[in-house]
Design a protein around this nucleic acid. Structure first.
Length: 240
DNA sequence: AAATGGTACAACCGCCCACGA
DNA sequence: CTCGTGGGCGGTTGTACCATT
């Protein structure tokens, strides 16, 4: 409750960042890192809240950010992962190198969600009517509903994937047609290989859903994700 | 050509959790 | 063991841009 706000609101700038501010922030982080976000604005001479700096850095200025259109593979991944994980945007983002949780969240709310909704309707053609807006707009989707391995419409997109829901999500993989799974195969193996690798090593180290940390619904989630991925790989291998 | 509505993206807000004193 | 602080996360809002009427 009586928590003081993360920063004093007075005298701090808000709203869109200027190029100058961006440069200042980037320069400062490159030089000194960002060990303390709260202190950073002062040190860098920015009239911004530390949180704001962090957000700007993470969502926009980080060098490893992949700007630009989401590929259909990425969109498919988001759909898949969201079906499994719910609104755990950061977890989803962790599986999509170069993408931020905020970006993914936006993409989900703006068109993926609609795409799913429309595809769940018999003849709903509620496809977005715009392709691009800004240079970085998400134009790609080309809106072929074709290549999207949409989970069954009834699939609960719940924000809390519990023990009971997880297995059903896994069962869901069985509902993919072989054609859909072709897409899956290339996607999971190519796009996510690196992230899986790192988590696999954790698996090899004996990490199980419960062994990592006491309250580890996240780890449990990761466990199921890994399982799902591996299941996908195994199944696609078996098709060869 | 102007007005209006819809869409996409960036940014903010508040809450929760982990960690250190 | 308790409390305070900082960081992270998800939800929501604000605004610019584009399409349609």
């Amino acid at each position: 409750m009586g928590r003081s706000p993360c920063c004093e609101k007075t005298g701090l700038k808000r709203g869109p960042w200027t190029a100058e501010e961006d440069m200042t922030l980037v320069a400062h982080i490159e030089q000194h890192g960002h060990s303390n976000w709260r202190a950073l604005p002062k040190q860098a001479g920015l009239l911004r809240c530390g949180k704001s700096c962090r957000l700007r850095w993470i969502n926009y200025l980080r060098p490893d950010i992949k700007r630009g259109n989401f590929t259909s593979e990425e969109e498919d991944a988001i759909i898949q992962l969201h079906a499994m994980l719910g609104n755990r945007w950061s977890t989803i983002a962790a599986r999509l190198p170069g993408r931020t949780d905020n970006e993914i969240k936006n993409v989900w709310h703006t068109h993926l969600k609609k795409r799913l909704e429309s595809s769940s309707k018999p003849s709903g053609q509620a496809a977005p009517k715009r392709n691009a807006k800004k240079p970085v707009a998400v134009a790609s989707t080309a809106d072929g509903p074709a290549s999207v391995p949409v989970l069954s419409p009834e699939q609960p997109i719940s924000s809390s994937a519990t023990d009971s829901s997880m297995p059903s999500s896994l069962e869901n993989t069985d509902s993919f047609t072989s054609e859909e799974f072709q897409i899956e195969d290339s996607f999971w193996s190519e796009t996510l290989a690196m992230t899986v690798d790192s988590s696999d090593s954790a698996m090899e180290a004996g990490v199980t859903p419960n062994s990592a940390s006491p309250s580890s619904s996240n780890d449990e989630m990761d466990f199921w994700v890994r399982l799902f991925m591996q299941a996908g790989e195994v199944q696609s291998l078996s098709q060869i």
